[in-house]
Design a protein around this nucleic acid. Structure first.
Lengths: 163, 163
DNA sequence: TTTTGATTTGTTATAGTATAACGGAACATT
DNA sequence: AATGTTCCGTTATACTATAACAAATCAAAA
């Protein structure tokens, strides 16, 4: 559990965050012969523009501003594509989407979601997932996909709200 | 990870399952001075009637049949109460609800959800949760609540669908 | 270069999930 | 019986997501 935690560092250069993510996305799609169309690219950028998970309907107005059609299917299609490519994840507890900080690498991530500032961070959960799969297999259950979502308080909010 | 796995045993006496759950619920509420009203009791029973997580809107018709009002708030209120009492859990990946097999005991459960038959089982995940909390705390994140949901294939479906 | 087939997008409609708000009924005391 | 609290009925609406089909775009073959 060590990657993708930059969001908890208050003063990082978020523009660079975004640019790096966009670059990775472009080269990944190119390598896979997938089309990162203008809509998809814009949606990805919007998702990356905050470290807080974004609801689909929060994305729509920005699409409209950019001159695209902005009915729900537009954004959901883009999000579906981005999820298939591993570029964004959906957080079930929030019905919201967040950029993946290390697409490409097959990974096992859990989300640490701050109840106060809504920031969400993807942390590696390889060990925990292995443990769960192993225990599940003792019950005869074969694991295919895991969703680990953690609610709590991030270091910044803890600091500012010492009780 | 050893409790609540009875749902994977094909031929258990499910009526007894239900009756035991209802008895536990009644005594728990009594002990806590909480009112397990007819609506709440019926909703709990309906949720228990299948080992498959039940959507709120699947519960409504049965409420109507039983002569109760059956607008959404009715069932959501009952479900909210039952969740607060730890009698049912919500599975975020499915927007659905399932009875808790061991209410009262503070517990740390994950859900093993079969993609084929939709059966969901609550399994103990104390160790995995401890591991996650511990890793999260290294990032300065304080865990308050965890949601671990696993999709896969249950032993019955694996048996019947040997590939 | 035109044709062809596949993919992507626009558009309208609708399905599915959940809550707000307020008044009235039932309950548990005083 | 009076009172305050909790619960329920009711209407309306918000939020999340997908179905279905036509039009446009793209990408490779003819």
């Amino acid at each position: 559990m060590a990657s993708g935690t930059i969001a908890f560092e208050s003063h990082h250069d978020h523009n660079q965050c975004i640019e790096q993510a966009m670059d990775e996305a472009r080269s990944l799609c190119k390598a896979r012969n997938q089309r990162l169309t203008p809509i998809r690219e814009l949606v990805l950028k919007l998702v990356w523009q905050s470290h807080k998970p974004l609801g689909a309907y929060e994305i729509l107005p920005a699409l409209a501003e950019a001159g695209f059609n902005s009915a729900p299917p537009t954004v959901y299609r883009a999000l579906d594509f981005l999820q298939e490519q591993g570029l964004v994840h959906r957080i079930a507890l929030l019905n919201a989407f967040i950029g993946c900080p290390h697409p490409g690498k097959s990974h096992h991530g859990c989300f640490l979601i701050c109840r106060h500032c809504n920031t969400a961070v993807e942390a590696d959960s390889r060990d925990a997932e292995a443990l769960i799969s192993q225990q599940a297999s003792k019950l005869g259950f074969t694991t295919e996909q895991q969703s680990i979502e953690v609610l709590g308080c991030c270091p910044n909010c803890r600091e500012h709200a010492e009780e």
